[in-house]
Design a protein around this nucleic acid. Structure first.
Lengths: 254, 254
DNA sequence: AATGTTTGTTGATCAAGATCAAGTCGCAAA
DNA sequence: TTTGCGACTTGATCTTGATCAACAAACATT
């Protein structure tokens, strides 16, 4: 069987047993700087949810904002539909990342969040979190930092979208993924993409065909080996150079 | 004289006298939801600074992060230089807006912020603000909301950069400026751009020449009247339609 | 295995906007 | 007023990546 029987409650006990104290992600997640006792308090407001299957939505755009969600395993994408235009994929979320921060000041979530594979999340009711952050300065501070980091990541994304060529975008995407996997203790060189080419294209502002072609070219240049969604990064350094648009080698430029 | 004599201390008394309680911007600014007594406390940590002249920097990229700044009058731009690439203009700041939120989780500011005209700001030391936000839930909450809003604005900008045509970008830019002026009680139809065409182009991911050409076209279509940096918006509705890429009207053109 | 359906690849053409190259305008200093 | 320089405009050409159109592969369902 590929999946434990949800119906028997096996999963239920599994995600109910899970606690921040025993979670391998806690050094990367919101409670990263909390003391034991504080972590207990934090842990107490968390609600574990049944796993989402691929394609299921965590919440819909314009649903009432209530909670943040920390990704426990799997991955998700955030998609915003605005006006008459097409959807815009604004973010991918990997384990330990926090979903929903951009909904805080509205009463509604600004985008739909969809699981890209089987995914488990921890639900953090925002009113509880805010109340708790009054008593635990480290928690408040960490929340500010997390949001601030996201702001900076957004600025980097803007630079990518407004100044980088298609090659640079793809290269940046791989480098960024690689780093995120490394931080989580996975191999930075071999991983499986949970998103489709169309998702990647939408996120990077490129047509699917372009994504496909450039992946092909990278492969010919022995920068990566791609087979379907399986990725092996062969030359991370050069990829980093491509991402930053500076020529890789030949010094004597004068 | 076009400007009060800075040397006599007239300005000094002016910005020293200024307090949140009497500031016309306070309903738009951080203290917007504070009670009188709380506002006093908040006001006490603010440092008024001497006005910046056009082209002067508020802080440099990689300078140590210490404070947020609320714009009191004038305007600024934020510019990030990364790696070998060119500068990227990531934001314009108008009165009541908060500068520096993306530096919180690093020890350094991620970009240089430069005055586009004579500009006054209120300096808000972040450590004091954070301490104060422990005792004043409304302040903390407002800070979260402000950051969250900025996140959402960033997502909108990403959509602009990755999906919109040059025309749509310029139209969006004008509509957005117009709205921001309206909120501040200025005319949404007539204003002066404090930024150059090059700044606009850089911000919107367009070449200067393209900005120039499209402004010209908008003018011919009687959407705006532009003379140098003076802008009159003639047809805000249509401009809004252009920004959202849906065709406006005229059926049987061909 | 046969089928449809989604997902990904490849080739040919086209257009939006960048780039290059002159200019023109406008403001500031002397 | 002249000079100079930066900001802006306008035109001609070129490039990148979108779009259109098949097609192939992977996967699920029967």
């Amino acid at each position: 069987m590929s999946m434990p029987d949800i119906t028997t409650g096996k999963w239920h006990s599994l995600f109910n047993e899970a606690h921040c104290q025993t979670c391998s992600l806690s050094p990367l997640c919101l409670p990263l700087s909390l003391e034991f006792t504080d972590m207990d308090e934090f842990d107490a407001i968390i609600r574990r949810r049944a796993p989402l299957k691929k394609g299921e939505t965590l919440f819909l755009q314009d649903a009432t904002f209530t909670s943040l969600y920390a990704v426990r395993s799997g991955s998700l994408k955030q998609v915003t539909t605005e006006g008459s235009g097409e959807d815009q994929l604004t973010n991918f979320y990997l384990p330990s990342e926090l979903v929903g921060l951009d909904g805080i000041d509205e009463t509604r979530y600004p985008g739909t969040v969809i699981a890209l594979e089987t995914t488990t999340v921890c639900e953090i009711p925002f009113d509880r979190l805010e109340a708790l952050s009054q008593d635990i300065p480290e928690l408040r501070s960490q929340l500010f930092r997390t949001m601030s980091k996201e702001l900076r990541d957004d600025r980097r994304m803007m630079r990518l979208l407004s100044r980088k060529s298609a090659d640079q975008r793809l290269a940046s995407f791989f480098v960024s993924l690689s780093e995120r996997f490394r931080r989580r203790g996975y191999s930075p060189y071999s991983f499986r993409l949970s998103m489709s080419r169309a998702d990647i294209g939408n996120y990077l502002g490129l047509a699917v065909e372009t994504v496909s072609r450039i992946l092909n070219r990278f492969q010919q240049q022995s920068l990566v080996a791609v087979s379907g969604r399986e990725v092996h990064i062969l030359d991370l350094d050069t990829l980093g150079c491509v991402a930053e648009e500076r020529a890789l080698d030949s010094p004597g430029v004068s």
